[in-house]
Simulated assay, not measured.
Amino acid sequence: MLARHALSRAFLPLLVLLGGCVSLDSGSDDERLPTQLQGKAEVLSTTDADYARAAISSAVKPAGQGGIVEGTVIRLKQDVAVWRMWNGPAKLDASGRTNRIGGWWSYDAPKGTQAQYRTAYEICNGWNDLTWVAKCTLKAGSVVVIGPGQSVSAQTCGDPTGAETYPANQKDWQTYVDKPWARPTELVCPADTEDYEANPTDISKVKTAS
């Protein structure tokens, strides 16, 4: 689960999904956007023709269920790099696919330890091994949702011991791209040969041979 940014509560985007009702606070776009996206995106109102294709209801979830706490729908005004951690090319699902392309991304490059990243982005062990890093580009005109990560319960993670839980995180925001496999002109990724296997103690670096 896919990017985030440190802001005071006074400047958090307040595009909040409450029982199907969405409200947007006043202020300029830059006041409602994380620093990394200021000047690069515009905040969309619910009346904008592009708003619906962001699928905000698929991103905003109740406490304990992952996703994001609250969401802001944006349309990019210029290309933006995004990152996603995944299981690597050798691990395939029952359909013979990898999890390289998915809905959740970050506009911040991965950093810290693998464990720190898992906690920051509330990613259950069963969802993602977090062993490889892909860097792609969201093109100008892309419509996505951004927001702070929601908490994840042990039940959601499928952990019967109750040990694996993750708190909500207002600092590191996520980027949700709805049905990315159907949006090749918006989310542009190089071949997976350009990805790297991450060092678990510093995921910003390539894992070295032991």
Rank of each mutant, 00 (worst) to 15 (best):
Y176W: 13
S151Q: 07
N87E: 02
S57A: 12
M85L: 15
G149P: 06
A94V: 09
V144P: 00
V80Y: 01
E186W: 06
L14C: 10
I68Y: 02
T156F: 12
A10C: 08
N125E: 10
N99T: 04
P13D: 08
S106P: 11
A59T: 04
G20I: 07
R97M: 13
A54S: 11
A198Y: 03
D178A: 11
A55G: 05
C189T: 06
V177F: 09
L33C: 02
G71L: 00
P167F: 05
G158S: 09
R97N: 15
S142W: 02
Q150A: 10
T193W: 09
D159M: 02
T165K: 12
N125R: 10
G27Y: 07
T98D: 02
V22W: 13
A90I: 13
A140I: 02
S204C: 06
V16S: 08
A163S: 13
P89L: 09
T193L: 14
L138Q: 00
E70V: 08
V73Y: 01
E197C: 06
A59E: 00
G126F: 04
A168K: 03
I203V: 10
P62R: 01
P200T: 12
A198S: 14
L14Y: 11
S26D: 12
T185S: 15
D159Q: 03
I56G: 04
S106I: 07
A55N: 13
Y117S: 04
V16H: 07
L37Q: 07
N125G: 06
G162Y: 09
T131A: 08
G102W: 08
I203S: 00
A59V: 05
R75G: 04
K111W: 06
T161F: 05
W181F: 08
G103D: 05
Q155G: 15
N169P: 07
T161M: 06
L15Q: 14
T175K: 09
V22N: 09
G141Q: 00
M85K: 06
P190Y: 07
G102F: 07
Q174F: 13
G67D: 06
W132T: 06
R84M: 12
D79R: 13
L12M: 14
L12Q: 15
Q36F: 14
Q155V: 15
K171G: 09
P34E: 12
C136K: 03
R118E: 10
V143R: 01
V16R: 11
A63G: 03
V80H: 00
Q170I: 12
S95Q: 13
A90P: 10
P200K: 08
C157V: 02
V152Y: 03
R32V: 11
I203K: 00
V80G: 00
G88W: 01
W83Q: 01
D195H: 04
A109M: 10
P148Y: 05
R75L: 04
R9L: 15
